[in-house]
C-alpha cells in the first residue's frame, strides 16, 4: 500500500477537495433518485400499524405476504396478461408497418414519395388528446369497444409516424451498392428488403421495439378511455384503480405499486444498454 502511494505523483490538496465535491454531488443525486424507491419497498413490507409507528425506518418484520395479498386482491395476474395481450400485437404491428413504409419512403421510387412522407410527419405533431374524443365514437361504431382492439388499433396508428420517421432515417443511411448487387443477382424489391436490408436493421429495430414496448406498456390515458371494462384493463390503469380502492391502506397500495414496478426495473437492469438506446433513440439521432 505504502509503495503504491509513493509511486503515484502527489496531487495537490485542491484536487482532492474537488474530487470529493464531485463525488458528493453525484452521490447526492443518486440518493435523491433512490430514496423514493426505498420507501416504496419499506412501506409495502410493513403493516399499516407499523407504518403509523415507524413511517421512515426499515420494516420491523419483513412482511412479504403483503405482496401475495396485493397480487391476489388486486387481480394483478389478469392486468399483466391484459397488458401483454395488447402490447405484443402493437409492437409487432408498429415495427413491421414502420419497416415496410420507412423502407419504401427511403429507397423505392414512386410518385408522391416526399408528399406521403410529410403527410406522416405531420402526425408527429398531433397530440393524442386532439383525436381522443372522436376515436371513442369511431371505435364504438366499428364495434371494437369492449375488446382489446380498442387499444391495439389506435395505439398502433399513433405510433406509426415516429416509427416511419425513424426507420426511414435508418434505411436512407445504408449504402446503395448493396441493393444494386442484390438486384443484379435477381432479387425483386421485396427480396432486397427482406434478405439484404432487414438483416442490417437489427439495432434500429431493437431500439424501435423497446421504444414502442415502453410506450404501450406505460400508456395510461388511452386505456383509461377505451379499455374501461375491468376484464380488459392493463397494468397501468389497473394499478390506478387498485391504489384508489385501497387508498388509505398504504401498505396494500405500495405493495401493488411494487408489483407493477419490479418487473420493468428488473428487465431494465439486465438490458440496460438496449433500454437507454431505445428510449433515447429519438433524441440522440436527431
Amino acid at each position: 500500500m505504502a509503495n503504491a502511494m509513493t509511486i503515484r505523483p502527489r496531487r495537490p490538496m485542491g484536487f482532492w477537495i474537488a474530487k470529493g465535491a464531485q463525488y458528493g454531488i453525484l452521490i447526492l443525486f443518486a440518493v435523491f433518485v433512490l430514496m423514493p424507491f426505498m420507501w416504496v419497498v419499506f412501506t409495502a413490507l410493513k403493516s399499516n400499524l407499523e407504518i403509523a409507528q415507524e413511517p421512515l425506518g426499515l420494516p420491523p418484520n419483513w412482511r412479504f405476504e403483503n405482496l401475495a395479498q396485493a397480487w391476489n386482491q388486486g387481480k394483478f395476474s389478469r392486468y399483466f396478461v391484459n397488458s401483454v395481450i395488447v402490447t405484443v400485437p402493437i409492437v409487432m404491428l408498429v415495427v413491421s408497418l414502420s419497416c415496410l413504409a420507412g423502407y419504401a419512403l427511403a429507397r423505392l421510387r414512386m410518385p408522391g414519395r416526399m408528399l406521403i412522407f410529410y403527410f406522416f410527419l405531420v402526425g408527429l405533431m398531433v397530440p393524442f388528446t386532439a383525436i381522443m374524443i372522436p376515436l371513442f365514437y369511431i371505435l364504438r361504431d366499428i364495434g371494437v369497444l369492449g375488446t382489446y382492439w380498442a387499444m391495439i388499433l389506435p395505439q398502433t396508428a399513433i405510433s406509426l409516424p415516429f416509427g416511419i420517421f425513424f426507420m426511414r432515417a435508418f434505411f436512407s443511411g445504408l449504402p446503395y451498392d448493396l441493393t444494386d448487387a442484390a438486384k443484379i443477382d435477381g432479387c425483386n424489391d421485396f427480396g432486397v428488403f427482406r434478405r439484404v436490408m432487414l438483416p442490417l436493421a437489427g439495432p434500429a429495430i431493437a431500439a424501435l421495439i423497446v421504444f414502442n414496448f415502453m410506450g404501450s406498456w406505460n400508456a395510461f390515458l388511452l386505456p383509461l378511455i377505451y379499455l374501461q371494462s375491468d376484464k380488459l384493463r392493463p397494468v397501468m390503469t389497473g394499478m390506478m384503480f387498485f391504489t384508489t380502492r385501497w387508498g388509505p391502506d398504504y401498505s396494500m397500495s405500495m405493495a401493488g405499486t411494487l408489483i407493477v414496478m419490479a418487473p420493468i426495473m428488473a428487465v431494465y437492469l439486465v438490458f440496460q444498454r438496449q433500454f437507454i438506446q431505445g428510449l433515447t433513440a429519438g433524441a440522440v439521432r436527431g
Partner: peptide, 8 residues
C-alpha cells in the same frame, strides 16, 4: 439516474 425514466 436513468432508473426512474423506465417507470410509467
Amino acid at each position: 439516474y436513468f432508473l426512474p425514466v423506465v417507470l410509467a
